[in-house]
Design a protein around this nucleic acid. Sequence first.
RNA 1: GGGCGAUUAGCUCAGCUGGGAGAGCGCCGUCUCGACAAGGCGGAGGUCACUGGUUCGAGCCCAGUAUCGCCCACCA
Length: 871
Amino acid sequence: MQGLRHTLARVAELENRTRYDPAEVEPRIARRWLDSGLFGPEPEGTAAENYSIAIPPPNVTGSLHMGHAFQDTIMDALIRRHRMAGQRTKWILGTDHAGIATQTQVEQLLASEEMSREELGREAFEERVWRWREQYGGTIIEQLKRLGASCDYDDERFTLDDDYVQAVLRVFVVLYQKGYIYRDRYLVNWDPGTASAISDLEVEEQEVTDTLYFIDYQLADGSGSVTVATVRPETMLADTAVAVHPDDERYADLVGRRAILPLVGRELPIIADEYVKPEFGTGALKITPGHDPNDFEIGRRHGLEQISVIGEDGRLTDQAPERFAGLTTAEAQAAVVAALDERGVISKREDYLHSVPFSQRSGKRIEPLISLQWFMRMDELARPAIDVVRSGQVTFHPSRWTRVYMDWMENIRPWCISRQLWWGHRIPVWYRGEETHVGLTAPEGEGWERDPDVLDTWFSSALWPFATLGWPEQTPALRAFYPTDVLVTARDIIFLWVARMIMMGLEFAGQIPFSDVHIHSIIQAPDGRRMSKSLGTGIDPLDLMNGGPRPPVFEQGGEFPAYGADALRWGLLAMSSSQDVRFAEDKIAQGSQLANKLWNAARLILLGIAPETTAAVSPRTVEDRWILSRLQRARAEVTQRIDAYDFSHAALALYDFVYAELCDWYLELVKPRLRDHEPELSATLLHVLVATLALAHPIIPFITEEIYSYVPGAGGLLAAGVEGTPAPVDEAAEASLDRVIKAIQDVRAWRDFAEVRAAALLPARLLADGYDDTAEHLGRLARLSLETDGGDPVAAVPVPGGAVELLASPDLDLGAAERKRESRRVKVEREIEAIERKLGNAGFLAKAPADVVQKARDEFERLQAEREALR
RNA sequence: GGGCGAUUAGCUCAGCUGGGAGAGCGCCGUCUCGACAAGGCGGAGGUCACUGGUUCGAGCCCAGUAUCGCCCACCA
């Protein structure tokens, strides 16, 4: 009794809430979820029966951008769908220490205090970063809550947690012992911006116009010279050879002789190598193994000396002639060119457009140089990782990414894993003189120095799906949630992250880390450019949820309305595709309209049903049976689309059901019955409402949870799932109602064309089959006064199964009606002509499938009947 | 240099294994019809980039062309 009165009081609140207000509702609902403990499953059962996803860990100091909002919405829809289906579901949450990104931010902060990390010292610096993390590390987590992401917030991980660090070090040591990890002097991509080596994957090519200098090198025997072409004359100081193509007749007699390096005086052997392109430049190539990747390889083939004239600080070293030492590369280039000019050995200059490597991290031009670094051999680890994708144990969606993965894996190269940073997993290697110790802890004894470098952030990321669950311990969590079910990410980190997780998962956890990889769209700015803060093309998802300024990329200025999280979520999913898409604010607005529509449909239902309604359904009328049938189809459609990672169609199917079936037709059809508080109707309405909420919840969780709290007799959270007995599809009810819907539309269109007042009730006769249960609906929704008599008709509207005859009425302008009839006649004639042509085609009749031919014949008959009626 | 994707209504995008092109927004008209004007109802608007081909039939399949985007790659 108490409960009922409470329910009534709550439902009465709905009277006044005619518009859905996400700003008021969403924080309240978020709180309820977090307090419920629903998102933190017990680590029980097996991974096969449970459902889990590991979040791609955002940078600890980052904040939510559009890519996160989109990706996290996808994951949340999957997570909520499985949780509601009754599976034990865990969304593994955590953040990444993001070595370079975080260190750079803190260094910038120090710079503003006129401090450098070197001045501060390593320990104090690390301390400072930890404090920074304390301060900003929680931001993105709070933003995830705002979005409604149902992560396991009580079990948050960080890639520098003690346990995680131990896992990383252990992996390093094991790989070292297996011989996969080694230290080598090798030509690396040196990033002068971060003063660290970076991996091939962190390098991007950019087009640059350089000057191509043609420089004459005198031959040692004084018999002439050979001219080489270069865009980097400063590196000539480190030349150790000149190379020509073995088949190049112009230079055949030079091979084996020696040239003299200008400015330096070193004698260079002239060698022959297939790599040289005779048609490029002069066909003679200066060889600089110390500063060019190709030359490095050539140098190794020919046993050439490797000279380094550029140091890790980006300045010339004392290996260069004294007058150049200490200059930056740009200064050195100018000085070398000037010196060469002085000698008159630059015979030509050309502008030359080519692509050169830049650091994705700092934006600085990469300086290839030889450096002592740690590397990891990947080919053996790749083999099983290729197999699991080839055999389908790991599946990419969309499937075209499979080949991208395969191509890269089959040509995989060693990975430079050491970084000259302070923020990260410090390499577990100690040195003392010639001795090296690799282990989880420092060696005994005095005088050991630990390697100063840290590991590439992606090294620790590669362990994410299992290191977050307690590996190397065989924890209950690991048993319950590893392997995870799906990895959701953008294509840009297939190599950086996805591939490496598969390799490491197989090697260390003994199993694939996930069975499916969903590669989602990248959402571009409305103008098609990349979304980026610095370009002014970034759109902050928080501004879309809470209201905020429209960034400059929008033609329309002003503020975003506070669309709310549901609208953002629905809009992002609706935008998504199997390819990249442009951000469309329209879609977010459409999402907020859906929310408002659903809210008002719920108000109509909850304020209209009998107060003691229970959800025991026994549909009586054809429209009740119809909506239950349509609901069943919508349910199948939406869940199937989600399971296929086809989120735009899932979102649209939901929208279509709510608008086009539930609101536009069903609720309109039952309005007259509503005032009677008819129990069967109330039960059906309540059932349909709850089922619709459950269907929509993975996509728009807030509003559905809020409405659910008003449902009589509904305890607990919608997010936990609801019991539902799916009704079977009812073909007969669908056919019957689809027929009357079409008839109503036909009559409405006719009225509009014939300029009948919208409010006018037209006297009419229904001369058509199949409307026994629905004639009343036709009359009401098409505004017809259906009669059995009334004299001669003045017009006929063809409808499925026959026609509606309109009787004389002051509201009916016969002139307009005649115009309508004439226009329709022309259209029908044209259609008949087309279909006659088709049916007169012997090839069509002979070769087209029977059902297609039959369909054409039916259509032909229908059109003929209509033509008859229009006479 | 190789590969992938795209080109459909004014805009953003759908179109399943080939049967006669859809949605949202925008636009036009109309309606205070017992939830919702962020609404209802009706409507206009497309030689499906181009050229050939296969087929009874092509937005969809094949070949080529053009434009745009992305990825990979060691031409100084």
